Simulated assay, not measured.
Amino acid sequence: MSLEPKKQPVIVRKVIRKSAHHGGAWKIAYADFATAMMAFFLLLWILNATDDKQRAAIAGYFQEPALFEAGSPVLTVPTGEGSGNAPSTIDFEGGFAPSPEGLSPSQLAALAQRLDSARLESLRLSLQAALDDSAALAPYKEQLLIDVVPEGLRIQIIDREHRPMFDLGSARLLPHAAAILEEIGTMIETVPNPTAISGHTDAHPYTNPDYTNWELSTDRANAARRALIAGGMAEEQVGRIVGLGSSAPADLEDPGAPINRRISIVVMRLETAEAVFEHDSATLELPGD
């Protein structure tokens, strides 16, 4: 009989250390921080460059821009800033001088543009962070295109092969597309900028001559509007609904490509929106008037 002790089996345990995953939430915080810092430094600049009367005028300008006449040395301030019930005025004695003692109309406009750009950049970063971090949006990341265009911040939701946004030939949103639009609507609601929504189709013609790609693209843009509002975007933020049919394809070489079927949402710059809507609401002069 052997008296040798039994050898115990050697157990090797392999420990795999997983590094922590950092989502895109930091991008939202960074966007808010960048916007706050820009606003803070602009505020310091204004406080240093103006006196009390001019600061009151600047505050009135941002509250009621229509009361300020470009190039005028006089700014009307709403009731409550002056005495009595009538609006008061602030005379800048010949206009704003482009010196440390005052702000010219062009400087005021530049200030408003910078704040507007900061808002849109913050929104872009927030949308990008949601794409990186949202479980609901992650599967559709390739169908969302976000870029900056002269009119503002553009968000496009495009069709992919075997992953459309709508039922075939219909304006009924599929559940995943509705979820994407509602998520976007929640974010657009955080800015005051109006939106322009356009629908696009591919070039495949309809057999029904009474309902063409023009009607379909318009109905789809309207369906997108309803989903954005359901997500939280204010109805008053809708500035324009357009159906472009197949007239502006994303893929010029293949008019029937799925990418041509898309919804485009432009969060408009305030300056652009003002110019567009002013043009649209211009008085119509009929012959003989």
Rank of each mutant, 00 (worst) to 15 (best):
G24H: 02
L153H: 08
G80K: 11
Y211S: 07
I28N: 01
A138M: 10
L244T: 02
A248G: 02
S264R: 13
L252H: 12
F33L: 15
D32S: 09
F166D: 01
F68K: 11
E64T: 13
A20D: 04
G94M: 11
N213D: 09
K7Q: 11
P78F: 01
E142H: 12
I229K: 04
I263Q: 09
A86I: 06
K6F: 14
T195W: 03
S72A: 15
H176K: 07
P65E: 08
I16Y: 11
P73K: 11
P258R: 04
A112C: 03
E271L: 09
L270N: 10
N85D: 12
P150A: 15
A138K: 13
D91S: 09
A138W: 00
S117M: 08
T283I: 14
H162Y: 03
L137K: 04
E69Y: 02
V149C: 05
A129T: 02
A227L: 11
A129H: 02
T89C: 05
P139K: 10
M165R: 04
A109Y: 06
E189T: 05
N260T: 02
E93I: 06
D219T: 08
D254A: 15
A223L: 08
F166Y: 15
I229S: 06
F277C: 01
L120K: 04
E121I: 10
E189H: 13
Q143C: 07
I11P: 01
L284P: 00
G94E: 08
L75R: 03
G84D: 07
Q54M: 12
E101L: 06
L144H: 06
A224F: 02
P255E: 09
I28Y: 03
V276Y: 07
V77Q: 00
V74T: 15
M233K: 02
Q128L: 15
R55A: 11
V276T: 07
L111R: 01
T89R: 14
L228N: 00
K53W: 10
G199Q: 05
V276M: 10
V238K: 12
L173Q: 09
L47F: 10
G256M: 14
S19W: 01
A31H: 00
E121F: 13
S83E: 15
R240E: 15
L144S: 03
A29M: 07
S2V: 03
H176V: 02
A39L: 09
E81N: 06
G102C: 09
E215F: 03
A275T: 08
H200E: 08
G239I: 06
A257I: 03
T89N: 09
D51Q: 12
S117P: 01
H176I: 02
P249S: 02
A221W: 00
T35L: 14
R261Q: 15
E64K: 10
E161H: 06
A196P: 00
I146F: 10
P194M: 05
Y30T: 04
P287L: 14
R172M: 12
G95C: 12
L286R: 11
D219F: 07
I16H: 12
L216R: 14
T272K: 05
T195Q: 05
L270D: 13
L44Y: 05
S19F: 03
D116F: 11
L125D: 04
I46F: 08
S72Q: 07
D133L: 01
P258E: 13
I180T: 04
D202A: 12
L43I: 03
T272D: 08
P209D: 10
N208D: 15
T186F: 10
P249T: 02
P249R: 01
